[in-house]
C-alpha cells in the first residue's frame, strides 16, 4: 500500500469537504474492498477519511420504507428482524455474502460500491480499460468465465458489482441517499445508480467525488415481503456468485399481482429484469409461467467463450427462485 495520511471525520461535511479538496482521497468505513484493492495497487489514495464516526446508523421503518444507515454493518442488517420479516431477499443476500468476519466489517454503503472481481482488473500486470482506460480488455479472449453477458461493451465485460446486496436492492427499488460537500442530500434510485461500461468502464456509478452514501431506503411492498435471494456458486459458501437472483412476488388467488426480479453476476451491473416482471404480472403463479418469463431475462445476452453457461443457469435460477417464493 502507498503511504497515505489518515483522518477521522467527526462530521459529514468534514469528510465530504476533505474528499472534495483532495482528489486522491477515499472514504474508509469497513475497508474490506478499499484495503484489498490498495494492497493490490489497483487503487492508490493519498488520504483515507475514516467516516465511521458519522451518524449514518440505524435501521428503522419510515413512511418511505426501511431506512438503513449506510454505516450499518452487513451482519447487523442481515440479522435485523425488520429486514428479515419485510425484505427476506435483502437479509439473504447479506448473509450469503462473503464470510462472517467480512460481514462484521463491511458497511452497507461500502457494499454497494464493491468493485469487480475480474482477474484482469485486480492484477496490474494486465491491461484493463476499467483500471487504466485505453489499455484494452484481455477478458474478451481470456478468462471470462465469471464475467458479464448483459450490458457489456467491447471495452469491458466485467460484472462491475460482483456482490449480492445490490442485486436484492435493485429488485426491490431501493433508494440511496447521497450527501455532498455542501451538505446537500439527493435521492437516487439504485436502479439509476450504476452505470454501464460503454466506452467509460472506469465510471461505475453516478456518485460524485464529494458525495457520500448516507442511507439506503427500501420501500415496503407485498412483493418485498415475499422475496428471496438465490445464489449459485462454485463452492457452498464464501464465494462470489456465478449467477444469483433476487425475486419478489405478490400472488393473489394464484395469480401474480406484482413481481420484482433481478439477476446478479450476469450483467455489467446488477440486472433488473423489467420484462420478466411484466410477463409475470397477471399470469398464474406456476412453474410454466416462471419458465416462460425467465426466457425473456437473457434476451440480448452476449456470451463469450467461457460464460455461455450463464444463460441457462440464470434462467434456471430465476425459475427456482420464483417457484420457491410462490411455493410451487
Amino acid at each position: 500500500m502507498n503511504n497515505f495520511s489518515y483522518i477521522q471525520a467527526d462530521k459529514a461535511k468534514e469528510a465530504t469537504a476533505a474528499k472534495r479538496d483532495d482528489k486522491s482521497a477515499a472514504f474508509i468505513a469497513g475497508g474490506t474492498t478499499l484495503l484489498d484493492l490498495m494492497k493490490l495497487n489497483v487503487e492508490n489514495h493519498g488520504q483515507l477519511i475514516d467516516v465511521n464516526m458519522l451518524p449514518f446508523r440505524g435501521i428503522e421503518m419510515t413512511k418511505d420504507g426501511l431506512r438503513i444507515g449506510a454505516l450499518e454493518r452487513m451482519s447487523e442488517v442481515g440479522a435485523h428482524p425488520l429486514v428479515k420479516e419485510n425484505f427476506p431477499a435483502v437479509s439473504e443476500s447479506l448473509l450469503l455474502a462473503a464470510s462472517a468476519q467480512l460481514r462484521n466489517m463491511a458497511s452497507i454503503g461500502g457494499n454497494v460500491l464493491q468493485r469487480t472481481r475480474c482477474g484482469y482488473f485486480r492484477d496490474t500486470a494486465f491491461p484493463c480499460n476499467k483500471r487504466e482506460p485505453g489499455t484494452g480488455c484481455p477478458a474478451l479472449e481470456g478468462d471470462n468465465r465469471n464475467l458479464a453477458i448483459l450490458g457489456t461493451s467491447e471495452t469491458c465485460i466485467a460484472t462491475s458489482y460482483p456482490g449480492d446486496l445490490a442485486v436484492a436492492l435493485i429488485a426491490l427499488d431501493a433508494v440511496l441517499t447521497l450527501e455532498n460537500a455542501k451538505g446537500k442530500q439527493r435521492q437516487v434510485p439504485i436502479t439509476k445508480f450504476y452505470l454501464l461500461p460503454g466506452t467509460t468502464p472506469q465510471r461505475e456509478t453516478v456518485l460524485e467525488a464529494d458525495e457520500l452514501i448516507v442511507a439506503v431506503t427500501i420501500p415496503q411492498t407485498a412483493a418485498a415481503r415475499k422475496s428471496k435471494y438465490l445464489k449459485v456458486r462454485d463452492r457452498s459458501s464464501y464465494a462470489y456468485a456465478l449467477v444469483s437472483a433476487a425475486v419478489g412476488l405478490e400472488v393473489q388467488g394464484g395469480t401474480v399481482r406484482a413481481a420484482r426480479v433481478a439477476l446478479g453476476a450476469v450483467g455489467a451491473q446488477p440486472w433488473r429484469c423489467f420484462e420478466v416482471e411484466k410477463a409475470l404480472v397477471g399470469q398464474p403463479a406456476t412453474e410454466a409461467t416462471f419458465r416462460a418469463a425467465a426466457e425473456l431475462a437473457l434476451r440480448g445476452a452476449k456470451p463469450r467463450e467461457h460464460n455461455a453457461y450463464k444463460i441457462e443457469m440464470a434462467k434456471n435460477t430465476l425459475v427456482r427462485a420464483l417457484s420457491e417464493v410462490a411455493s410451487v
Partner: peptide
Amino acid sequence: DPNFARYTNADLAGYHVPVNA
C-alpha cells in the same frame, strides 16, 4: 490466460479450495 500465460485467479478468492460448508 492464453495470451499472457499468466494466471487470472491467483488468490484464495479466485482459486477455490473447499470450505467447511
